[in-house]
Amino acid sequence: MTTENVTLGADLHGGGPADEQPRHMSQGTFAMLLFLGSEAMLFASFFTAYFMVRFNVANNVWPPIDPVTGKKYVLPVAVTGVNTLFLVSSSFTLWWGEHRLQKTGDRKSLERGLLVTIFLGLTFLVIQFNEYWHLGFSPRDQAFGSTFYSLTGLHGLHVIVGLTLLTICYVRSRRRHEFTAERATVLWASSLYWHFVDVVWVILFCLVYLL
């Protein structure tokens, strides 16, 4: 991440470009970290909406009362809690695959790890989709519905993007035998993204479902 201080006179006549020197972090990983900062701010803007609606307007009467039925809206905390476990465990399976690659250079384990992760991510998506189907309120129902669907929907989109990235990694590993312990920027960046999606979900689950 830092540029090496090359003393005057060293490498005067055409040493390699600066990026051939050892660095702690590859350019791609650094870019992904910055991008995740940007993504975090995108979620922050929707969380801002959520909190302002919840505390400024609704005075924390939350979930608010459905004007049609006269009852409070209900969120399926238990099912989603289980679903959260799926997603969190997917981070660990991904970590296992990467760990195997890094320690032993075992690409087969990486592929297995990726497959299980993708499977868990898909499971999460399906359960979340099923939840949408059965919630009984839509994005048009009160600001509550709007903020709930926008936050979870935005996260769902990120899960889809994360799954795409992991699938690309799987394809590259299978078909091109890419990724070694030393050189796997695309893999590290994708897994960073996936962990980010997980962390955001844990925060989202706590703030939207539990709080």
Partner: peptide, 29 residues
Amino acid sequence: TPFIAGSQIMSLTDRVMGTNFFNAANGGD
């Protein structure tokens, strides 16, 4: 920049999809 993206997404969905981010009548702000 993500904040203006967020604000415009909310504004857009409010207008074309009928969400209630800014609709005070339905709890928006």
